[in-house]
Design a protein around this nucleic acid. Structure first.
Lengths: 106, 106
DNA sequence: TATGTATATACACGTCAATGTATATACAAA
DNA sequence: TTTGTATATACATTGACGTGTATATACATA
């Protein structure tokens, strides 16, 4: 989870992920879409791959990259666990203050 | 979104966020829970605050920090948009290859 | 086999951000 | 008003990471 966040925090990798959400792409297509150098795209793809977020398949000289579900699903569930924040507009501040006063009374 | 990811990618801040999910905490309580120095906790809290992920309220010398929903909701929705990956176990590789062949035929 | 195309790796460099440490501020209580 | 407690800020240092660039590898085709 930590690794997924770290990997996504880099803007170019974030853009690659958003691009691949629309379907698989070859390295060359990604280079064109992002406008950064091919070696950098390959390097970012390697990092994404090591984080388990993409996989690649070979077709002749082409490498077709696509997203892997696991890390995305994991983070989706993690963020779901915060949904109480907006569903109940709750931060428990009042509750905290009451606990605090109780401790003071002891 | 970019900023939220960058902010969460730092392990100590990630831990602070997980801690605050259980409810508001004072700086001192966070220091105790994480076992890192107080200046560092304050600095990480400042970064979280500038990212709009936490707010603080004063009670005497205490600063009580709690989570803010916005950034979490935003990222939750972003990750939801990838749910097609695991709900359909789909990466569209076959589709890509067929498109590729069509282009070759031209 | 020679040439072109697609992709990956290696390496040196610069930058930014986390850390350690000292100190400042704010408030309370004696 | 002095002392203690809680928190914030300042600053120097170090290490990790993204970048630029050169080069290697893999494959196809002529």
């Amino acid at each position: 989870m930590q690794l997924t966040l770290l990997t996504l925090a880099e803007p170019n990798r974030f853009n690659i992920v958003e691009l691949l959400r629309n379907g698989p792409k070859s390295v060359g297509e990604i280079v064109q879409a992002l406008g950064i150098s091919q070696p950098h795209v390959s390097r970012h793809l390697r990092i994404l791959s090591e984080a388990g977020m993409v996989r690649s398949r070979s077709k002749a000289q082409l490498r077709i990259y696509s997203l892997e579900a696991g890390p995305f699903q994991e983070l989706d569930e993690w963020f779901d666990s915060f949904s109480i924040l907006w569903e109940e507009r709750l931060d428990n501040f009042e509750e905290y203050m009451q606990d605090y006063k109780k401790k003071e009374d002891l």
